[in-house]
Design a binder for these strands. Structure first.
Length: 639
RNA sequence: GCCGACAUAGCUCAGCGGUAGAGCAGUUGUUUCGUAAACAACAGGUCCUCGGUUCGAAUCCGAGUGUCGGCUCCA
């Protein structure tokens, strides 16, 4: 919205919303429609808080322009209620808009209602949006006089930038509607009457220019759509997402819970832990097929190891420290450094490589209290981690194979992985030349694999460039899960790893860090929301509920359950004295794939009446036939 | 960590200065039932914690803890 020379706005994608957490991951913004990236395309975001970012009101389409116009109308309403309000920025975003304000007091829900009422009045009045351009100095003086220091700051930044590049200073453009005037580059709809049905959603804090060193403003989020129907659909979608919230379903399905005695760590209930182990074991099987060897290393490690690995310098703030007997230890935030002890426990030959060491290590990261969120952002979690030591010539084929692991395991859930390549970050370990080499190796592997990926510069781990994998859930939200990193720096150099090559020389191996689920915790959170709790048969914590119709059928039900358990299938018997209808209702609510009804007919014939959770019915199936069918379905791991 | 909101029975929530309520779940009894809720009785609470105001606090105020919505961060 801010005036002048914001041609670079198109780079705004919402890439700056992207997370680069590699193992716990964080939710990433839905991929912007324009961001479909082929192998050659770069994915670049405006630097957070930069003048480019501030200038980009996100108004690239007609809908964006309307949303951005709604932000102006909201600002008009807020200024009406708070004449001293200082205005930040107010761009359009996915599904709506926001505007940031510095106000004399915190906003309340009542304020939101009052703001909405004023907005409606302004829209009804159908004020035209009028663009004006004035010379820079005049524009600056105008906002200075109106006591809008944030606007003045933006203008001063523009001036500074212009004098740097030697370009002429563009005139200041403003948009005015009714009594309200704002620094803005546009575009806008013709008049306020063109703004569709809207709703203010929430108030939140937001640092000015995204910097925790700057003042915190109050941000109001709103949504606006061309038609009432689209607004209703959007609100319905949000309701649907709420119903799928893994925090809510975790309680409903008795999977896990959270307690104030351990913020950021899940308490796994029997059913949740069954799911957890099922996923873990599926991955173990895949790893066994690929020649991984599982290890286990201590969760608490002395400081000197972290000094050697570089974590002490670059990662200490996220580590839980423990002082004992005048030594400092840390709960490990990553598994990688410890695997080197196992690597170094004997002299390695080139014939030993690739050496694939997997570890389901318990990790602790001291995340800020404010970022914790259910299973998706935790302080304690386990990754399906592995460190693969390879010869340089094996990197390409290994990465190829790892990408195959991702495809295979994600197909168990019907998830379609997306790939992002992250390069050397600002805070990075080691020689830039090594980084360049590692990046080239990874890029080559990606290119030769022929798959689509996008690049995010500076998004690598502090010790290695990485390929991150995101998945989209059933509601189109993207989550970061897996990661593959090619490390020439931390493990090989800092821990002085070598192997003996064909010539008898001691040379450096390359360490590939990889996690396919990423954190089990996070992955399960994503799965719960993706499936809305109705897990595929193969990993459902309860695959079958046997429902005896009357007491006299309970013994047979237990017998059938015993046969199922003997095949490692997860079964429960509802032997309560509830009526059958109620037992079915409860099993439905628990999203159990199969309900087996046992009455006189079935017990006599040793058959079952099958009802699946879609409500489909199949009668007279023999016990053996059902057991074989379920065992087959479980082994096949179909989504 | 920062801004704001919220915290009442196992769960979902009502009550918002005058000795704590509902539905579901639980227990017990009756019922033995054919594809999404049988009937009844009973039991269940330091109203998050600590402090303050008040004759009196679940209710008002302050601090702490946790959670939620964001921001920042995120290997």
């Amino acid at each position: 919205m801010y005036s002048a020379g914001a041609a670079g706005a198109a780079s705004g994608e919402s890439g700056d919303e992207m997370s680069n957490d590699d193992q716990t991951g964080a939710q990433v913004a839905p991929a912007p429609s324009g961001a479909a990236a082929g192998p050659d395309e770069q994915f670049e975001a405006a630097v957070r808080g930069s003048v480019e970012e501030l200038l980009d009101a996100g108004a690239h389409t007609d809908l964006d322009a309307m949303r951005h116009s709604a932000a102006h109308v909201m600002a008009e309403a807020v200024v009406g209620l708070f004449p001293d309000a200082q205005l930040g920025i107010g761009p359009s975003i996915d599904d709506g808009f926001y505007y940031d304000f510095l106000l004399s007091r915190p906003l309340t829900p009542d304020d939101l209602a009052a703001i909405e009422a004023r907005m409606s009045a302004s829209i009804a009045a159908d004020h035209p949006f009028v663009r004006k351009e004035v010379p820079f100095a005049e524009g600056r003086a105008f906002f200075e006089a109106r006591r809008q220091p944030f606007k003045v700051e933006i203008l001063d930044d523009l001036a500074a930038k212009a004098s740097e590049t030697g370009e002429p200073l563009s005139p200041t453009s403003t948009y005015e509607h009714g009594q309200f005037i704002d620094l803005c580059k546009g575009p806008h709809v013709a008049s306020t009457g063109k703004i569709g049905p809207f709703k203010l959603m929430t108030v939140a804090g937001a640092y000015w220019r995204g910097s925790e060193k700057r003042p915190m403003l109050q941000r109001i989020y709103g949504t606006v759509w061309p038609t009432q129907n689209e607004l209703d659909l959007y609100l319905q979608r949000r309701e649907e997402a709420k119903k799928r919230d893994h925090r809510r379903l975790g309680v409903q399905l008795d999977l896990y819970s959270f307690h104030d005695v351990s913020p950021g760590a899940a308490f796994w209930h029997p059913k949740g832990w069954t799911l957890y182990r099922t996923l873990e074991n599926a991955m173990r099987e895949l790893q066994a097929d690929r020649g991984y060897q599982e290890i286990y290393t201590p969760p608490m490690v002395a400081k000197k190891l972290w000094e050697q690995s570089g974590h002490w310098d670059l990662y200490r703030e996220h580590m839980f420290l423990i002082e004992t007997e005048e030594q400092t230890f840390s709960l490990k935030p990553m598994n990688c450094p410890e695997s080197t002890f196992i690597y170094k426990s004997r002299t390695r030959s080139y014939r030993d490589l690739p050496l694939r060491l997997s570890e389901y290590g318990k990790l602790h990261r001291n995340e800020l209290s404010g970022v914790l969120a259910g299973l998706t952002r935790v302080r304690h979690f386990v990754t399906d981690d592995a460190h693969i030591y390879v010869r340089p010539d094996q990197i390409g084929s290994e990465i190829e194979a790892l990408l195959g692991e991702v495809r295979t395991s994600y197909s168990w859930f019907g998830l379609e992985p997306h790939f992002t390549f992250g390069t050397r970050p600002e805070k990075a370990l080691g020689d830039p030349a090594l980084w360049e080499r590692a990046e080239k190796l990874m890029r080559d592997a990606l290119e030769s694999s022929g798959m689509r990926y996008r690049t995010k510069e500076g998004d690598g781990a502090f010790y290695a460039p990485k390929i991150d994998i995101q998945v989209e859930d059933a509601l189109g939200r993207e989550w970061q899960t897996a990661t593959i990193q090619v490390d020439l720096v931390m493990l090989p150099e800092r821990f002085d790893l070598t192997y003996v090559d064909e010539n008898g020389d001691h040379v450096r191996p390359v360490a590939i860090h990889r996690a396919i689920y990423g954190s089990l915790e996070r992955f399960i959170g994503v799965l719960v929301e993706h499936f809305a709790g109705a897990f595929p048969v193969w990993c459902a914590p309860v695959q079958v509920v046997v429902i005896p119709i009357a007491d006299r059928h309970v013994a047979a039900a237990e017998e059938l359950a015993g046969l199922l358990r003997a095949r490692k299938l997860h079964v429960e018997v509802d032997g309560s004295d509830s009526r059958m209808q109620n037992k079915i209702r409860l099993a439905q609510e628990q999203k159990v794939p199969y309900m087996l009804v046992l009455g006189d007919r079935e017990v006599e014939a040793r058959t079952v009446a099958i009802r699946n959770r879609a409500g489909e019915q199949e009668n007279g199936v023999t016990w053996d036939a059902f057991i074989d069918r379920l065992a087959e379905e479980t082994a096949a791991r179909r989504p």
